[in-house]
């Protein structure tokens, strides 16, 4: 319970204290660890069920959720400056540009000529 209160406080101070160095406590880390372990169990369990085209979607959705938790809490991005958030955003954006524009070529090759 106490961790949740702590979490609430962090959010409250987020605007003013952006530059101040923030120490994330073990309570948050334990919650995130449990969430990650549950996520892993969930994604393995989901992979044993035949969901057709939804299997990859679910696996990648869970992976993204886990990665987001790691980035936000283990890597402290939630408590970091806007600059750090922007940096992470820029990385994701460029990565998606590379993947999507390249895939756009490969997928549209199958459409043939005009």
């Amino acid at each position: 319970m106490s961790e949740q209160i702590e979490l609430g406080e962090h959010q409250h101070h987020d605007e003013q204290d952006e530059d101040a160095h923030h120490i994330v406590g073990p309570g948050v880390y334990v919650i995130i660890l449990i969430a990650l372990l549950v996520g892993t169990a969930l994604t393995v369990w989901a992979s044993f069920i035949d969901l057709g085209p939804w299997n990859p979607v679910i696996a990648l959705a869970i992976a993204t959720t886990k990665a987001t938790l790691v980035v936000l809490f283990f890597m402290h991005v939630k408590y970091s400056t806007k600059l750090t958030k922007l940096t992470v955003g820029a990385g994701i954006f460029t990565f998606l540009t590379l993947v999507s524009l390249t895939l756009a070529d490969y997928i549209s090759r199958a459409w043939g000529s005009w």
Partner: peptide
């Protein structure tokens, strides 16, 4: 170093999903 280690963890989270899980059916 913590940032680096967590990053390596994130890469694995995706590798696990892409290589092991999504093609089981």
């Amino acid at each position: 170093f913590g940032l680096y280690w967590h990053f390596v963890d994130i890469i694995w989270i995706y590798l696990f999903a892409l290589l092991y899980l999504i093609s089981r059916h």
